[in-house]
Amino acid sequence: MKKNTSCSSHSKCPPGLSCDKAKAKRVDCEAEGYYPYHHLDVPVILSEVHLQALVEADIHLPTPAKEVKFIKKNISLKQCEAFKSPYGHKVKVFITGVVHKNVVYVEACSGNLKDYHVDIPFTCSDAVDVWHYVDQYPSQKSSLTAEFKYLDKSNHGSDRCRDGAYTKEYFNEPIECKLVYSDIFELDLYKNHDRFGRFTKITEKMDVNLWFKLLQTQQTNGYYPYKKGSKPADATESSDNYEPTIIDRINDQRR
């Protein structure tokens, strides 16, 4: 067995470590195609979200400032992860963002402008309502939950040399975030003044607002992708004629 002796880190999900291989003795294949009633595989907007984060941070200037001329700022998302909650029509959203600030100030009544860049990271999470169906199906990868045992030759117990199992994996489309708009309302408090009236600390109190879409790629025919027995009361007439998806066919085969 190979050992992982590397100390390097990965910012993205690395490939799985290669292990030993077993040779397949025989492979027989049979495939069948089905008509794709839901002929589009497109991003579906699950919800349009307004997220508000109240952020407080201290900025320590590299040199004393007499006056701040202006502060230029912008927001970027470093992480936006979402998954369907098992309770109600909600999705759990986890946000990690960064407020990048460019502080321009002067140290005295005359002289050059000083330019100081600083990043303020923030993290928050909440549950939000979704208005379209979320495709999310559980997998069962362990043979312990669906194991088949066989009688031994004496018919008095199980055969220790014969086992069977049923496992399944659904490869769900992830829920993606698409940032559309952001704004910041802030209060700046100047602190740590010296005897000349200059300050080295700015306490920021920010009301950060993010507007983004939650999207998931789904198979659809252009109408709302309802599932059997789950059509909301306000559904349009165009969604009454239900046609099977590939997931429905998988579930029908398993019955």
Rank of each mutant, 00 (worst) to 15 (best):
Asp115Pro: 00
Phe199Gly: 10
Asp135Tyr: 04
Ile59Val: 14
Ser9Cys: 11
Tyr181Ser: 13
Asn251Gln: 11
Asn155Trp: 08
Thr200His: 04
His50Gln: 13
Val98Ile: 09
Ile59Thr: 04
His38Arg: 11
Gln52Arg: 11
Tyr116Lys: 09
Tyr34Ala: 02
Ser143Trp: 08
Ser158Cys: 14
His132Leu: 05
Arg255Pro: 00
Lys90His: 10
Phe199Glu: 11
Asp183Pro: 01
Tyr87Asp: 09
Phe148Tyr: 06
Leu51Lys: 11
His156Tyr: 08
Glu243Met: 12
Thr236Gly: 14
Phe185His: 11
Thr200Cys: 03
Lys231Leu: 10
Asn74Ile: 09
Lys228Glu: 03
Ser47Leu: 07
Ser85Gln: 03
Asn102Gly: 11
Leu189Asp: 15
Pro15Lys: 06
Ser85Gly: 04
Asp58Tyr: 15
Lys191Pro: 00
Ala53Gly: 04
Leu210Lys: 07
Val208Met: 05
Cys161Lys: 02
Val42Asp: 03
Asn4His: 15
Gly222Val: 03
Leu215Glu: 05
Val68Tyr: 13
Ser239Lys: 00
Pro232Phe: 09
Pro232Trp: 09
Leu210Phe: 14
Lys69Ala: 15
Val55Ala: 12
Gln136Thr: 02
Tyr166Lys: 00
Gln253Ser: 13
Phe122Cys: 06
Trp131Gly: 04
Ile59Asn: 07
Asp119Phe: 05
Gly111Trp: 04
Gln218His: 00
Ser18Gly: 02
Phe199Ala: 04
Val104Ile: 14
Gly229Pro: 05
Thr200Ala: 01
Val104Asn: 11
Pro64Ser: 08
Arg249Thr: 04
Leu214Asn: 06
Lys12Ser: 14
Val128Tyr: 13
Gly222Trp: 01
Ser154Arg: 02
Thr245Val: 08
Val93Cys: 06
Val130Arg: 02
His10Val: 01
Leu54Lys: 15
Leu144Thr: 07
Ser238Val: 02
Lys205Ala: 03
Phe171Leu: 12
Pro232Ile: 13
Glu107Trp: 09
Leu113Met: 04
Lys69Tyr: 15
Asp252Arg: 13
Thr145Asn: 10
Tyr34Met: 07
Pro225Cys: 02
Ser8Met: 13
Tyr226Glu: 00
Cys19Trp: 07
Asp183Tyr: 14
Gly197Leu: 09
Thr123Lys: 13
Ser8Val: 14
Lys21Asp: 12
Tyr223Thr: 06
Asp152Thr: 03
Asn251Asp: 12
Val103Ile: 15
Lys78Pro: 08
Val44Pro: 01
